[in-house]
C-alpha cells in the first residue's frame, strides 16, 4: 500500500515537472541546427570625444599585480571611435543555433579580470581561474541572481559558479580594490562583446526581424530593429553618447 502511494507520488511529481517544463518551454530558448541563417555585423561607436582612461592605482601585492600599468576599462575607445567591451545581443529570439561547445572562462591574471566581459550561458558553469597564486575573491553585484562573495585562495586554481537569470553582473575583488569585470549571463547564444575597434558579429541567425540591443557600463543601453535575410548579411551601427 505504502509502496503504491509512493509510486503514485513519484508519478505525480514527474507529471507535474513535465507540465511545468511544457508550460515554461514557450519562454525558454530552443537551440538546434540552423540552416540558411544570416549574419549580423556591426559596430558600436562613441558619439563625442573619447575620454582618457584613468590609470588605476595598484597599491597591493605589487609583485604580482603591478607588472604592467593598468588602465580603467570602463570606457575604452579605439582610434576609429569604436567602443570596446560593449555587449550586443538579440532581445527577442526564442529559437536558433545551439550554445557553442566548450566552457566559459573568467581568469584572474595579473590582478585583472580576463576577459573584462565574459559571456556565460544561463545555468551553465562559469569557470573562474586564479592564475595569480595570491588570494582573490569573486564578489558579484547582481540583483536577479543571488550575489556571491567567494574567496579564491592561491591553492584553488579553479572554482565554478552558475547563474540562473540573464543579467549583466559586475564583479569586483575586495582584496584588490581596482579589479573590476563583468559577466554577461546569456539566455541564448546571440551575444557578442565588441572588439578593440568596436566591431561585433552574430552568425547563424535564422532569417527574420529582430530587436538588437547594446549595453555599455558607462553609456547604458540602446536598441534597434534589424532584418536578417536568409543566407545574407545585415549591418547595424550603434552610436552611444556620454550622459
Amino acid at each position: 500500500m505504502l509502496n503504491r502511494i509512493d509510486r503514485l507520488a513519484r508519478v505525480a511529481v514527474v507529471v507535474a515537472a513535465a507540465a511545468l517544463v511544457s508550460a515554461t518551454s514557450s519562454f525558454a530558448y530552443e537551440g538546434g541546427a540552423v540552416s540558411g541563417g544570416g549574419t549580423i555585423k556591426g559596430m558600436v561607436k562613441l558619439n563625442g570625444t573619447a575620454p582618457e582612461p584613468e590609470v588605476l592605482d595598484v597599491n597591493k601585492d605589487k609583485k604580482v599585480c603591478a607588472v604592467t600599468e593598468k588602465k580603467s576599462n570602463e570606457l575604452v575607445v579605439g582610434s576609429n571611435g569604436g567602443i570596446r567591451y560593449a555587449v550586443v545581443s538579440l532581445t527577442n529570439i526564442s529559437k536558433g543555433k545551439a550554445f557553442p561547445e566548450g566552457e566559459s572562462v573568467l581568469d584572474q591574471e595579473g590582478c585583472e579580470y580576463l576577459p573584462y566581459v565574459t559571456v556565460v550561458a544561463q545555468d551553465h558553469e562559469l569557470v573562474i581561474k586564479n592564475s595569480d597564486g595570491i588570494l582573490h575573491n569573486i564578489h558579484t553585484y547582481s540583483e536577479k541572481n543571488k550575489p556571491v562573495n567567494r574567496a579564491q585562495p592561491k591553492f584553488k586554481k579553479k572554482i565554478k559558479e552558475t547563474f540562473s537569470e540573464p543579467e549583466m553582473i559586475k564583479v569586483t575583488c575586495d582584496v584588490h580594490g581596482w579589479m573590476r569585470g563583468w559577466v554577461a549571463v546569456a539566455d541564448h547564444p546571440y551575444y557578442a562583446v565588441t572588439d578593440e575597434n568596436g566591431a561585433f558579429e552574430l552568425t547563424d541567425v535564422p532569417a527574420g526581424d529582430y530587436e538588437i540591443k547594446v549595453w555599455q557600463e558607462k553609456l547604458g543601453e540602446s536598441t534597434q530593429k534589424v532584418s536578417v535575410p536568409g543566407g545574407g548579411e545585415a549591418t547595424v551601427t550603434f552610436e552611444l553618447a556620454q550622459k
Partner: peptide
C-alpha cells in the same frame, strides 16, 4: 599566505596589511 592569506586584508595588532 600559503592558504587563505587572511593578512592580506586583516590586521593583527601592529601588523598592518598592504594598501590603503
Amino acid at each position: 599566505d600559503d592558504y587563505f592569506s587572511c593578512w592580506t586584508c586583516h590586521q593583527q595588532g601592529d601588523r598592518k596589511p598592504e594598501g590603503p
